[in-house]
Amino acid sequence: MAGIHITDIEAAINFWREKTPSPDGITLAPELRALAEVYALMIYYHEDEAQERGFPPKAYAAWKTWYDTTPDTPCIAICSTSQGDADCKGCGRTFEEVQYWPEMSPAQKRQTWRRITLQGDAWRFNRYSERAVEGEAGQPAA
């Protein structure tokens, strides 16, 4: 089973800190408390992943709420796996990851996102990232 990386738990914690700030600087929202327990245990045991299957239900629900705000797929509609490449030049996923993406668990998808982001050599991270900026601003990037 897939693991949820500590950086995703940190992102979920920050999401909930912004969404439900502490009213007194001490009290945590239930979602934050659930995620903080998992995070603290990971730090204590020097783990960088927590298995999706064993995640406490309340912490998983809080993490999943954050996860649902992230893009589902890294696809940029330029798929070289359909041309026989083992890894897609557009998004960086392997042929198997592209093929089985709809069946993958959220943690498996996040593992893939983490790998392709760290590699950073797919077109989505270089050639076409400028186009995304152009589209957002409505004019060419400087």
Rank of each mutant, 00 (worst) to 15 (best):
G54W: 05
C88R: 02
A86I: 11
P106L: 07
T81V: 15
A40Q: 14
E103S: 14
R127V: 14
N14C: 03
I116S: 08
I43P: 00
K19T: 13
T112R: 04
D8L: 10
I78S: 11
V133P: 00
Q99D: 12
Q83E: 15
G135C: 06
D24P: 05
P56I: 03
S80W: 04
F55P: 01
I76L: 11
P71M: 08
E130Q: 13
I78Q: 13
I6E: 02
V98S: 04
P140R: 13
Q108D: 11
I43Y: 00
A77W: 12
T7F: 05
D68Y: 03
Y44K: 11
N126V: 02
W101C: 07
V38N: 01
E10C: 07
Y128I: 13
P102A: 07
A59E: 03
N14M: 04
P74V: 08
Q83W: 12
Y67N: 13
A107I: 09
N126K: 12
I9P: 01
G92Q: 05
Y100S: 11
E31K: 12
W113V: 01
P57H: 01
Y67F: 15
G92E: 05
C91M: 09
D85L: 10
R115M: 08
G84D: 06
R131D: 14
A77D: 15
F55E: 01
I43Q: 10
W123T: 08
G84R: 07
Q99K: 14
Q99E: 13
V38M: 01
E18L: 11
I4S: 01
D48V: 12
T70K: 13
A59G: 07
R17I: 08
L35T: 03
P106S: 10
I13E: 02
Q139R: 15
Q51S: 12
A62H: 04
P71C: 03
R110Y: 02
N14S: 11
A142V: 10
D87G: 00
C79Y: 06
T117C: 03
K64C: 03
H5W: 08
G135W: 05
A142W: 13
G138K: 04
T7M: 05
G92K: 03
A34E: 01
M42G: 10
D24K: 05
F125L: 04
P102E: 11
G90K: 02
C88F: 03
I13P: 01
M42H: 02
F15M: 04
Y60E: 04
G120T: 07
A11Q: 06
A141W: 12
A141Q: 09
E52L: 09
E136C: 06
G54C: 06
Q108P: 01
P71L: 11
W123D: 14
A107R: 06
K64E: 13
Y128S: 10
W63N: 02
Q99L: 11
G84A: 06
I6S: 07
Y128F: 15
W123C: 11
A86C: 00
T65S: 10
W123M: 14
T20I: 03
P102Y: 07
P71Y: 07
I9Q: 02
A29Q: 06
P102W: 05
R124C: 09
Y44G: 00
M104I: 03
W123I: 12
I4V: 15
D87M: 08
W66K: 10
F125H: 15
A142Y: 08
A59N: 06
